[in-house]
Each structure stands twice: as structure tokens, then as C-alpha cells.
């Protein structure tokens, strides 16, 4: 599903590589936590998977496609197989909940018929039925993140990338979001979640990949956040 072979990423502005000879494999349907302190390379890792950036060295494969050799016009096709969720939700504040989700389908040319069918379905799945016509500003943080997850999932991606999705939420709301991500994972979607939230990592006991100054320092199935904690 996702494969990195000796991937190194050096940004011109910094002498130290953001990722340093990282190799790993994530299989279809896995749930993976990506942990590490700020600046450890988590965001770079996610950016490389989305081909927002290219590695300096090494090979990246997603869905058996080699990203290194992928041409620019093929990138949108790759991203249609991936969903993204962020700490800051990134919703369009002037569009309603339903419009925000529909937007993701409209801009990739899905027929209106399909959009009318799948948007209510996914909103029900994330527990937002009845709030279709609200604006993001009228929702709580947890609800806004549900909208973002609905938007990321509505096109049934193979991979869901989540960059600290609970970073702005209280513990209880975070738990709800994790339940939702687990549910999405059970549909067969691979979930890669970068996080600092050790409560969540420790309670879920899923595979943990830890980055330390760009170096892969731990890859442990059913892991916890930190051994010393």
C-alpha cells in the first residue's frame, strides 16, 4: 500500500535532513500512528506521500505507483485515492456542512446525481445528520473535524492521512474522533495519523512509527507513545 525505500529529504534551507534514510511498509487496512516531537519529520513524511514534495533520495510507492517518476498531471489522480484531515480542519467558512463535503466531489467532476446520494450518507456516518445546512462557524470543534473527516472520506479513499486531527480538541471529543477514524479503518481504509496525543496512542495499541530528527527510531506493532511514560 505505502512503501518507502531509503527515503531522504533535505530542504535547501536546512543542513540537517528532514527525513534521513527512512524505509518502511504500511499494508492495506492498517492503522498507524506516526509520532515524534515537533520537527521530527512527521509533516514531511505526509507531504511526500501526497507528492506535495519529492524526496531527495529514495523511492516512495503508494498503491503500487512509484511517486518519484509520476508526472505532474498524474498527481491529482493519486490524491483522489487519499483523504486528508488536519488539526485546523480547513473548512470553507462560507459554505454549509453539506456544501463543504460536496465541494470535494464537485471539483473532481463527480456527477450531481452521485453527490446528492453520497453526501447525506457520509454525513450520517460521521454523526452530522440534521446539521447539513449549518455553517462551520456554528459548529463545535469536534463537529467541524467530523465535517473535515466526512470530506476526506466521501470519495472512499484507499488511504486517510490525518495530521494531528485531535490537536485542537478536548480529550472527550478526541475520543469520539478516534472512534470515527477506527470505524473508517474498519471499512478497509488505511489510516496514517500523526499525533502528539499519548493518551490516544496508549489506549488504542496500534502500530506506532516514531521519527526522531528525521530518523526512523521505532516501528512497533501494538505500541505505546513512549516507553518512559
Amino acid at each position: 500500500m505505502i512503501e518507502l525505500q531509503h527515503v531522504t529529504k533535505v530542504y535547501p534551507s536546512s543542513p540537517r535532513p528532514a527525513l534521513d534514510d527512512v524505509s518502511m511498509q504500511i499494508d492495506k487496512g492498517e492503522f498507524v500512528f506516526l509520532i515524534g516531537s515537533s520537527g521530527s519529520g512527521k509533516s514531511t513524511f505526509l507531504r511526500l506521500l501526497l507528492k506535495e514534495d519529492s524526496p531527495t533520495k529514495g523511492v516512495i510507492k503508494v498503491n503500487d505507483k512509484t511517486l518519484n517518476t509520476m508526472s505532474k498531471w498524474q498527481v491529482p489522480k493519486l490524491r483522489r485515492t487519499m483523504g486528508c484531515v488536519f488539526q485546523d480542519f480547513r473548512l470553507l467558512t462560507n459554505k454549509t456542512v453539506a456544501e463543504n463535503v460536496a465541494f470535494a466531489l464537485e471539483v473532481i467532476n463527480k456527477p450531481q446525481r452521485t453527490i446528492k446520494r453520497v453526501v447525506p450518507e457520509v454525513l450520517e456516518m460521521v454523526g452530522l445528520d440534521g446539521k447539513e445546512n449549518r455553517l462551520p462557524g456554528e459548529l463545535s470543534g469536534g463537529e467541524q473535524q467530523r465535517v473535515a473527516i466526512a470530506r476526506a472520506f466521501v470519495n472512499r479513499p484507499l488511504v486517510l492521512l490525518a495530521d494531528e486531527p485531535t490537536g485542537n480538541l478536548d480529550p472527550e471529543t478526541s475520543q469520539d474522533i478516534m472512534l470515527l477514524l477506527e470505524r473508517i479503518n474498519r471499512t478497509g481504509t488505511t489510516v496514517v495519523m500523526a499525533t502528539h496525543d499519548y493518551h490516544i496512542v496508549d489506549s488504542m495499541r496500534r502500530r506506532v512509527i516514531e521519527l526522531n530528527d528525521g530518523i526512523l527510531s521505532r516501528d512497533q506493532s501494538r505500541g505505546v507513545y513512549g516507553l518512559g511514560r
Binding site: P76, R79, C84, L92, V107, N109
Partner: peptide, 17 residues
């Protein structure tokens, strides 16, 4: 930029954006 960022992430074609 908010719209175009989202369009880019959900895989809208360059042309469409």
C-alpha cells in the same frame, strides 16, 4: 487559497483549479 488548497488536496486537476 483556501479553496484552491482543498482542491489540490482532493485531487482536482490543475486545469480545473
Amino acid at each position: 487559497r483556501n479553496e484552491t488548497n482543498i482542491m489540490r488536496l482532493v485531487g482536482a486537476s490543475r486545469w480545473y483549479t
